[in-house]
Design a protein around this nucleic acid. Sequence first.
DNA 1: TGTCATAGTATCATTTTTTATACTAAAGGA
DNA 2: TCCTTTAGTATAAAAAATGATACTATGACA
Lengths: 126, 126
Amino acid sequence: MNNQQFDLSNWQSYGYSCPVEATLDIIGGKWKSVILYHLIDGEIRFNELKRLVPGITQRMLTLQLRELERDGIIHREVYKQVPPKVEYSLTLFGKTLIPIIKSMLQWGIEHTEKIVHHREQANVKD
Amino acid sequence: MNNQQFDLSNWQSYGYSCPVEATLDIIGGKWKSVILYHLIDGEIRFNELKRLVPGITQRMLTLQLRELERDGIIHREVYKQVPPKVEYSLTLFGKTLIPIIKSMLQWGIEHTEKIVHHREQANVKD
DNA sequence: TGTCATAGTATCATTTTTTATACTAAAGGA
DNA sequence: TCCTTTAGTATAAAAAATGATACTATGACA
């Protein structure tokens, strides 16, 4: 029971030091959680998503959607039309993330005003 | 009711497009959620934290802790000793984030194995 | 024939994040 | 006197994330 640290559980074998790190590997980054939030209510087209997430560039939106698709979180449905129509939606697996997104949503609703004010105070000399 | 979009609520007035974005502004980034996870059980010293989060550098740990402190999420207690002793802990406000961290923890516990396997499959040609 | 819309790609530039490395103070002990 | 420890800071460099801009295919429509 000296300096042995085998006991950090088996997360290292997955390449993570804890479960939270693993979760972040899926929903981490500046945009993914926000994208998932908008998908909670159902499928959304590419341009619609772009409008819902102002500030994201077309390139970033594409990249993030591709990663979420690769990880099995969202489904990409292409309609054979011109102009193109592509709809994104949560997979069953992706829906298991909803509790996380909802808790982030709830926290934001309850505490954003406070943190904004708090930062304004701090910015006296920043 | 035409192209008016005033209705995206008042989040823009805070500089965010939705509450989730605001939350990410506090706990976003590669390390903050992991740090908070380790602080759930009580106060931790700097070096102890460094050991619990392998992979993080001393500089990054310092930077992240400073930001969390600035936002009122954690408390920094300095003991006047040599060698120094500094303990970090969640503030009352910081504890409001626990539900988010716990849901991330839970998801990681339940789904990490699946995503690791899933990615191994995908990596046949990656 | 020229124009429009959607859902992208390609290329390059910039910004942000992260790392590596060396350095510091100060008290106690050998 | 030198070495150890903790909790950092300073500086520069590298890597990763993000952004800006221009470009594409396709069919419908004027």
